[in-house]
């Protein structure tokens, strides 16, 4: 019987993130499908509260690494903790979230354990007694269904694929795991997060609002209207609490020092060399809908676009509704209506 291990780290407040709770559901689903049990492995400053919070999940043993060295995300210490936990658990298949912390450290631990990784998987299930994952290749252009013989097999699960585990707390059976002292030359100094009122990337938002380069282009009167564009875009995303995305062309302009929209950075970029966010709905404005942009919409449910050009990329089967209209006029009215 394959030994399945759910792996997670705690947050600064000692809890488990939503992404980790989703990975717990993934591990549980796989174990049930394979008719196997599973264990849990947690690391962080102090993981006792997190273990108790999910004590009822069905995991056998909770293998735990606690200590100040593991409070922050840092490759050397995280890779050492993950390696020790997987060794202690004798894990064959390790399931975890694909958040930044685990994505950074898991491949290193896999190497140390002579294992393999399938990262960013979008489905995980048992078929005829074997585990299968689904993952995307070529930036979400095609997907593959994969199984493999090597163990340990690390599977990092993308957000939004599984429901977050939501069971009753209890008293977890915890087994502390020691990690030999890790030599590291790295100190984590700070997390730079935008202030709450300046936050425009909202991963949990129901709507993604994408701004394209058209917002800064000359309009019908022969002039660009960038300040109004900024006002309309921010006005909308704030009122609708939408997450703000951008095309590459628009964010590249700010890198090249042109007068553009100062609140946009490469972090907002959606597409081939940007993000592939997951939202139920998406509205693209002044964006042409070229393929390298639209691959970033793979996990956007309903899609609509506003563009002056009836032959833009969005018209080629890439969205559900294309409004051929001036986005300035439309968004001015939308903002007024949602007041």
């Amino acid at each position: 019987m394959e030994k399945i291990l759910f792996l997670a780290h705690t947050e600064a407040d000692g809890s488990l993130s939503r992404a980790c709770l989703e990975a717990l559901s993934a591990a549980k689903t796989l174990a049930e499908g394979l008719g196997a049990g599973f264990d849990a492995a947690l690391f962080g400053a102090d993981v006792a509260a997190a273990a108790n919070a999910v004590a009822g999940c069905g995991a056998g043993t909770f293998f735990c690494v606690s200590g100040q060295a593991f409070a922050q995300a840092r490759y050397a210490t995280d890779a050492a903790a993950i390696t020790a936990l997987c060794q202690a658990a004798g894990a064959a298949i390790v399931v975890c979230a694909d958040d930044s912390r685990l994505s950074r450290a898991v491949p290193g631990a896999a190497h140390r354990l002579d294992g393999r990784v399938d990262a960013h998987v979008t489905a995980l299930a048992a078929k005829d007694g074997a585990a299968f994952v689904q993952r995307w290749h070529y930036r979400q252009r095609m997907y593959a269904e994969v199984t493999r013989t090597q163990r340990p097999w690390f599977v990092t699960v993308s957000g939004g694929v599984f429901p977050a585990y939501d069971g009753a707390p209890g008293q977890a059976t915890v087994q502390a795991v020691a990690v030999a002292e890790v030599a590291t030359r790295t100190t984590v100094k700070a997390i730079l997060a935008p202030a709450a009122d300046e936050q425009t990337i909202r991963p949990d938002a129901a709507l993604l609002f994408v701004a394209g380069a058209g917002w800064t282009k000359k309009q019908a009167d022969g002039q660009p209207h960038t300040p109004e564009a900024a006002e309309l875009i921010l006005g909308f995303t704030t009122k609708a609490q939408a997450s703000l995305g951008s095309s590459k062309s628009l964010v590249d302009m700010s890198g090249e020092g042109q007068t553009v929209l100062p609140f946009l950075t490469h972090l907002h970029q959606v597409g081939q060399t940007g993000a592939t966010p997951r939202h139920p709905k998406g509205l693209a404005t002044c964006c042409h809908g070229e393929e390298p942009h639209v691959v970033g919409w793979r996990f956007i449910g309903e899609r609509r676009a506003v563009n002056l050009d009836a032959n833009c990329g969005w018209a080629q089967g890439k969205c559900d509704v294309l409004y051929v209209a001036d986005a300035f006029a439309v968004m001015r009215l939308v903002n007024a209506m949602i007041g």
Binding site: H137, A144, T147, R148, Q150, G317, K318, D320, V321, V324
Partner: peptide, 21 residues
């Protein structure tokens, strides 16, 4: 050690409703 059971393109074309005029 890897078995690719399938590699497929997503069904990506949508029936786009174009609203103009």
């Amino acid at each position: 050690g890897v078995t690719f059971a399938a590699v497929e393109l997503p069904k990506q074309r949508r029936e786009t409703r174009i609203v103009k005029d």
